Simulated scan of single mutants.
Amino acid sequence: MALTPLSEDSRLPSLTLPQLLLAAYTALTVIALVYAASTSSAAFGAYNSQWDGAGELRGVAADAGANVTVGTNVSQYPTSGADGTVAVVLSPAEPYSSSERTRIAEFVRGGGTLVVAEDYRPHGNELLAAVGADARFDGRPVYDNRNYYRNSSLPEATPAGDYPETTGVDTVVLNYATTVRAGNATTLVNTSEYAYLDSNGNANLDGEEQLASRPVVTSESVGDGRVIAVSDPSIFVNAMLERGDNRRFVQNIVTNHDTALLDYSHASSVPPVAAAVLAVQRSDVLLLFCGVVLVGALLAYDRRLDEYLRDRLREYRGHEVDPHLSRDGVEKYLRARHPDWGTAQVQRVTEAIIKQRSERQRND
């Protein structure tokens, strides 16, 4: 005996529960990734894929063999076992508090490597002073009328010697950069001797401005750790990674570190969705909460699905098609039971019933 087919608007989904969950998870993931990649327009942003963003920096660090973490809180700086971690700070938009500076200083003294990239904001120098580094950013733009990429505001700098950070690097291209007053720090990269600091802001060599080779990247030991000062955060952005040997230089900084912490705790460049995902990843409590919510949703869905199946079976039990009805009889029966069905649908269901009946008769 064949049960009367369900109407099209009441049929169950053809996807299984795991398939539905996978589809929902995939859709949410794609939406989150697209949203994160397309809504951040902040310069140096980790989720900004435009020329001035640092979206590619995560890939460069990963290619260097490091586990990449986008940090949104200074508490993510390890204070013990920090020797395998390099932290990168790109032109912070806000000052670090006293307790935050103390935490980062403990990270450096504990063996961590801190990279501070700054040009004109004051917070880079504040951070260098707080961790006990000697280097300082000058804050005046540097120009070079002879050695440059496209114009004098994009000077080409070269390694000052053979260092791990400059292995395979011939040229570092700067973009409206400043220089570093090295102090007791070791100079890793210099401008050419034709560079000058534009003190009066007219982008011309005049007055008391002098040509000289000046440091743009320095390195120094602080406690058991190290501080690297880079006088141009633009080196790390998507477009500039493709200029000169900038990509290789950035990779060299990260190489030989297990973890790369990209510190965005004082930058307004992490979109809300990405920030939420990062918060869940950091918090065991939030992760457990999300797991409980997911399990609860699965149980609720499973119960509703079970009730739906029972209701549909009760609804159609007892409404079986007489196996002795002819084709015309089956059509009349279906039209009476489902007056909302069209002719084509009635015919399709009739064919299915006749076919099913024939198959059962052959099996018998």
Rank of each mutant, 00 (worst) to 15 (best):
L262Q: 03
E242R: 15
L288M: 14
L205C: 07
T178Q: 04
T259L: 05
T187K: 05
I235H: 05
N204T: 15
I235P: 02
A260P: 09
T171M: 01
P215S: 06
A276Q: 14
V295H: 08
T186S: 06
R214Y: 05
N246A: 04
Q251H: 07
V293Q: 13
V173E: 00
V293A: 14
L286I: 11
T259M: 06
S231K: 01
A239V: 09
P272I: 04
D302K: 09
E209L: 03
T255A: 15
E242N: 14
G244H: 01
L305R: 15
A297E: 12
G201K: 09
N184V: 07
G244M: 04
V270D: 00
G291M: 13
S219K: 13
A239P: 01
S268D: 14
R243T: 04
S283R: 09
L299Q: 08
T187C: 05
A300Q: 13
D263K: 01
Y264R: 08
T187F: 04
E193C: 07
V250D: 00
D232C: 07
L261Y: 05
Y301D: 13
R304W: 12
S221K: 14
F236A: 01
D258A: 14
E307N: 11
R282H: 11
N238I: 00
Q281P: 07
S221C: 07
V295G: 03
D206R: 10
D263W: 01
G244I: 01
R243L: 10
D263A: 01
N200D: 15
V230E: 00
S265H: 03
F289V: 15
V273K: 00
A297G: 13
S219L: 04
D302T: 15
T187E: 09
Y196M: 08
A195E: 03
Y194R: 14
V189A: 08
R304D: 11
Q210K: 13
L261E: 03
N202T: 12
L241Q: 06
V277G: 03
A195M: 04
T259V: 11
G201C: 09
E220K: 12
L262M: 13
G296F: 06
R304V: 07
D263F: 02
L205S: 06
Q210S: 14
V273E: 01
N190H: 12
L287E: 14
R243G: 01
